[in-house]
Nucleic acid binder design. Structure first.
Lengths: 155, 155
DNA sequence: CCAATCAGGACTATCTTAGTACTATAAAGG
DNA sequence: CCTTTATAGTACTAAGATAGTCCTGATTGG
């Protein structure tokens, strides 16, 4: 249930392997992480599009984090790689799902989706790397509209 | 990101359409929910396997909730339909993923996975049906081992 | 017995995911 | 100014998951 894709996991590993401020080539990253170079390349391009890394072209070029690890959230990474797919089909952009009329739960899944999303948005790359401590099972039953989330179109 | 499958959504709608204690045939449920009969049938079988509904065979047979809606959790439904798939590949049964040696984040995703899971386990079918109120963006950064979760093999 | 209804599979399109390949563009450095 | 080292962009393919269908067998009420 509720999985993130392998590529998102890779992306996290890749971001984690970058030292803040230091320019690193895709080849170097591939070597460090043991993920295939073509895959690393592809992911870095997507992360660049999403603004999570900066790129420098040409000889001696490479990639580096666009901002501090504390300012990159799990949700950012997921969005960058998977696009803002929602929990249910109807929770997407202009949510319609065929059984809308008889569906009594759509709204609710949507809210659960938003809650989980907010939680992931509050979880930084730094947090992911810190080994100590664990997670609170969050309470999904109670209120708070949460940050409105504008689904963006994946290019 | 982080989606549940259409079938899980359907399953929720189906469960929601059942009146506690009342026996209802698959055909009747299909009509009520406007989901195709073969699909409804298939899902009800899975829900029966998972012990979320009871079935009665033969003429005048049908399905009914195995227990009160308050005692059926979102996690139960997801497990029943999708099986206990984990957030990352490595988070599964005997988690190995090829880049294990260099992977610094696996553990953490796993904990996030468990936290979300606990949250979904605490969310009942009743909660999903209640329209009022909204959800708290849960805090995934802080501690608590949470309920250990034994992945079961899907039959 | 017969009709209604669930049980259990097997099967098939379609979509998504993961991974690859190729060409173009940019910068560094002799 | 040309070669080398990189990223940018995009197209493509194979494998797997998802959604949905269909058929045959078992059970029960009337």
């Amino acid at each position: 249930m509720l999985r993130i894709s392998k590529l998102t996991d890779y992306a996290t590993v890749i971001l984690a392997s970058l030292t803040a401020g230091v320019l690193t080539s895709a080849a170097e990253i591939a070597e460090r992480t043991r993920i295939g170079l073509p895959t690393v390349s592809k992911l870095l391009k997507e992360l660049q599009h999403a603004g999570l890394v900066d790129s420098v072209r040409g000889a001696r070029g490479g990639y580096r984090l666009a901002r501090a690890p504390a300012l990159i959230s799990a949700a950012d990474i997921i969005d960058a790689v998977e696009g803002p797919v929602a929990l249910t089909e109807c929770a997407g952009d202009d949510g319609h799902c065929g059984i809308e009329a008889t569906c009594q739960v759509g709204q609710r899944w949507q809210q659960v989706s938003l809650a989980i999303r907010s939680a992931l948005a509050a979880l930084s790359l730094d947090d992911l790397l810190t080994r100590t401590g664990q997670f609170d099972p969050p309470d999904l039953r109670q209120a708070s509209a949460g940050t409105a989330w504008r689904p963006l179109v994946r290019s």
